[in-house]
Each structure stands twice: as C-alpha cells, then as structure tokens.
C-alpha cells in the first residue's frame, strides 16, 4: 500500500513553465538572481517570501509584464510549453494572451460596464472583430463564480461591485481570453477574509483546467491553496534567490532549508 493513495489528485506531473537561470533588473538594481524552477501543469504554485524578495518580479517575468516598467529588463529563459518566451521575435502581446494576470488591487476598467470589462480582452484585441461576445462573457463569469451575482447588472459599471466581486470580475476578464496560465499577484490582500476564502475556492476550481501561479505574503494562504511552494529570499546584494521549492505539505511540515523554516514559523531575521 502506497502513502500516496487517493489523498492527492492522481494527475500526471507535466511541466507547463520551465524557468532557467532567470535574472531581472530594475535599472541598475538586480531584483532576482539565477532562478530556475519548473511549474507544473494544472497545479497551483505559490511563491512566498518576505517583502523585497523579488516574488512579484518573478511573476511578472512569466508573462513579460516586467519589462513594461521603465528601465526594467530580464535575462534567462522562460519556456512556456517548451518555447522560450524571451526568444527574439516573440511578441510580448501574444505571450500575455496565453499567460493572464490578476493584480493585487481589483482594477476593473472604470469607464466600462461589467460586460465590457469581461469582453475587454476580446474586443480590444483587434479593431476588426465584430463577433458577439455574450457567450464568452457568460462562460467567463460563470467560471469566476460571479455570474449569479451580476447577471442582472451586466450593464452597470464594474466599479459599483463590492471588492470581492470586483476581484472576481478581474479574474473573469482574464479568463475570457482563455489563457493557459493565470498569474495572481497577491489577489486577496485587499479583500476581507470571506472574500479571500471565496477566491481560494475559486482557484481550486480553476486549476482543474488551467495552471495558476500565485504570489502571496500570506503564508497561510499559500499553505491552504497551493500544491507546490517556492520560497524566495533576497541575498546579501538584495537580489531574490530561490531557497526552496517543493510540495506544499512538505514545505510546511518539514522544510529542507533552515531559512524556510525560520520564515514560515515566523522566526525570520
């Protein structure tokens, strides 16, 4: 009898994103140093670590959003299904359609209705497409567990929803373009505990057919929701390094590195 009965979902461990010796800078500031890790398909990977350890930078490198900031650049390889998204000739716009992102603060477009917010990624992709989006919008809202709450308010402004609803609206907006990977940058840090748990349940639901990478400074959240946990820490020069990467239960019951243990038990520093 194996220890791994049906406790864990029996799922093939296929690599979705492979990060190889990734380095990133903001101008002269070295933000992350030589990070290599493999993100598994249809799993939730949590990235934890103290402030300034480069966890958000790592996340933003996975869909080439890092370089949007002035002076920011990245070096190394990020293989999405085996293809390097940093190879020359790769259009970052295309990468971002395949790897969506949800931000810390809910940021529905204030000038758009609930419907238009969800349809934004489809509508604004090209001037030409004039297809009807109603089906896609409904499906995205359903997947984000928001449909029942907003189906009568589709024409209302997205900013009129509650904080938790706004964040699920942003998730629906990201889902509407059907990305293969969803990056979440502290998606619940601006929400109350109930809305937070709702987002976490939603993540477990979504991960049935997408891959999720979540950055959080809330260790308990990482423990609750993720399958794999990566712990980052800034080195002496201030650049974030990968200290430990493993199955979440292992990291939280028996971390291999002293520094991980110190951080997750609150004895950091």
């Amino acid at each position: 009898m194996s220890h791994e009965t049906d406790w864990e979902r029996p799922l093939e461990q296929r690599a979705k994103i492979v990060v190889e010796r990734l380095n990133a800078w903001y101008g002269p500031v070295h933000a992350i140093h030589d990070i290599s890790l493999t993100i598994l398909d249809r799993r939730i990977t949590a990235v934890i670590g103290p402030s300034g350890c480069g966890k958000s930078t790592l996340l933003r490198c996975l869909n080439r959003m890092h370089e949007v900031q002035p002076g920011a650049r990245a070096q190394g390889e990020v293989l999405l299904n085996g293809e390097n998204i940093y190879a020359s000739g790769v259009d970052p716009v295309t990468v971002r359609r395949r790897v969506g992102m949800v931000f810390q603060r809910p940021n529905p477009f204030p000038t758009m209705s609930v419907f238009d917010n969800v349809a934004a990624g489809l509508k604004l992709h090209s001037l030409l497409s004039r297809t009807r989006f109603a089906d896609t919008v409904e499906r995205a809202l359903r997947r984000a567990a928001l449909w029942d709450e907003v189906k009568d308010k589709l024409k209302k402004n997205g900013a009129a929803l509650s904080g938790g609803q706004q964040q699920r609206l942003c998730i629906a907006r990201a889902l509407a373009v059907e990305p293969e990977v969803l990056l979440m940058d502290e998606p619940a840090s601006a929400l109350d505990p109930m809305a937070t748990l709702a987002i976490e349940d939603l993540m477990r639901e979504l991960v049935q057919d997408t891959t999720i990478v979540i950055v959080t400074h809330n260790m308990q959240q990482a423990a609750r929701v993720s399958d794999k946990t990566a712990f980052l820490l800034a080195n002496a020069q201030g650049a974030g390094e990968l200290i430990e990467y493993g199955d979440t239960p292992q990291v939280f019951t028996n971390p291999k590195d002293e520094r991980t243990e110190a951080y997750i038990t609150g004895r950091f520093g």
Binding site: H3, W7, Q220, A223, R224, T248, P249, F252, T253
Partner: peptide
C-alpha cells in the same frame, strides 16, 4: 497521522 499533520500545517 501524516495527513492530519499536513492538514494542520496547511489549512490552519
């Protein structure tokens, strides 16, 4: 027992 410890560690 392992499963119990995992749940305590990860689910608070």
């Amino acid at each position: 027992e392992e499963q119990c410890i995992e749940l305590i560690a990860t689910q608070q």
